[in-house]
Design a protein around this nucleic acid. Sequence first.
DNA 1: AACATTCATTCCACGATGTGGAATAGATAC
DNA 2: GTATCTATTCCACATCGTGGAATGAATGTT
Lengths: 253, 253
Amino acid sequence: MVDAPAGSRAAGSVQSVDRSLDLLEALAQEEKPVGVAELVELTGLPQGTVHRLLQSLNQRGYVRRDASRKYSLGASAVRLADAAQRSLARSARPHLAELVELSGETANLAVLEGDDVVYVAQVPSPHTLRMFAEVGRHVPPHSTAVGKVLLAGMPRERALAVLRRTGLAPRTPSTITDLDEFATELDLVVVQGWAADEEEQEAGVRCVAVPVGAPGAVVAALSLSGPADRFAGGRTDGLVAQMQRVARAFADA
Amino acid sequence: MVDAPAGSRAAGSVQSVDRSLDLLEALAQEEKPVGVAELVELTGLPQGTVHRLLQSLNQRGYVRRDASRKYSLGASAVRLADAAQRSLARSARPHLAELVELSGETANLAVLEGDDVVYVAQVPSPHTLRMFAEVGRHVPPHSTAVGKVLLAGMPRERALAVLRRTGLAPRTPSTITDLDEFATELDLVVVQGWAADEEEQEAGVRCVAVPVGAPGAVVAALSLSGPADRFAGGRTDGLVAQMQRVARAFADA
DNA sequence: AACATTCATTCCACGATGTGGAATAGATAC
DNA sequence: GTATCTATTCCACATCGTGGAATGAATGTT
């Protein structure tokens, strides 16, 4: 087999399925409808193949073809997404509860939805003083620990593309607003395997997050968050190890 | 080729892609993790095939395999949602505007998200008196015209499964709360090709909806809604025809 | 604890299925 | 009207996925 420069296929996977997912993800990336030729560019697949796979996806409503023969994601994708959120939330709950037990702070599970971070499950801290973030809330990726983890887990070029679209709006005085500086922060997250949010999203709130899934295939992030004075930096080291253990258990393998 | 009893494949589609989508939809349907054997039951596919396709989907994060080797939808599916909603909303807007022009009432585009109906786009009526429903709002399928259209567009068994999960809570005195009665209403919607909501969701609000997409592959619903006394039944006939025309234009082909 | 049963996973020879280059039709720009 | 895109169709080929059967792992039963 010759090696494909972009879009090489993982062992033991079905070619046409893999390629269809490539197409869906390419479409998700673009914010406007995309023609076949451009998808050929983006995925490196032959024209005929792109066209045929799109037909399959179109028939099932996962992509839409508009009057100008350009394609975008379709309604069926929406249906799947919601079901996926529910089942993720359900299976995460016991793991989040374990983290709350260990730390006394609020635990969250977050995933990327388009360019936003969205919290899909939460187990709140037993403390009366607990912090923010309802389930379903969308937050920008650059000012949160979970966002950093999720961005660090994707190819750098893609992460930068997300940040270019969302921008790095200041949420607090601590928010990182410089792209280069943020890229350095991502490097740090990659090597240490976890991320912190030092009151960058909400004044007085500190947050620590770890990735779920193999490096390079990060699908979600687990976080603990609490008031900055109670949830101090000194406790971080031990907790991160525990969080990583729970993340592995959740992702299993 | 022999005919497959359940899950026959549309012409011009790629078998393994089609089957993968069957699996994803089967998983979306179930609310708890599902094993390979049960998926064989649900889809009629051979074991080896189910297993292999699940591997592909798992590697990409579209399904998760838990410790007991049962599968559920994964985080990657969530990522698609946002982009899909946005692109649906964008391409719907001109069509909705056309309906507002024709009717003077508020036009909406709604899709099914899991078991809920969610409004993804809206163009409001120019009248100062206009009714409810913001974009993003989740409503139950049984008390809305859009919900009826979406339920009528799926296999009856599946629609009933949704209703069993959501229940038929009364929203107003007019809400249909009996499952058999509602099934009869769905029969009507199927044959006439549109649905009405006669103050079943909100007192004083009448609503008419038509399906988007081929019968049996309904992906969304277009609706017009307005105050019951202004948006009277007499005008319905002509408007429905216009709405169906717009729905075809939106779905194109 | 040994057995029976159910389920997930691996294997592999076969050929149906998807592939992709090249030709055609269609759209858009010039 | 011509040129230049781009989308779509076609088809001979062989790759790729297929699925039945075998293996292995796990759970339940006596």
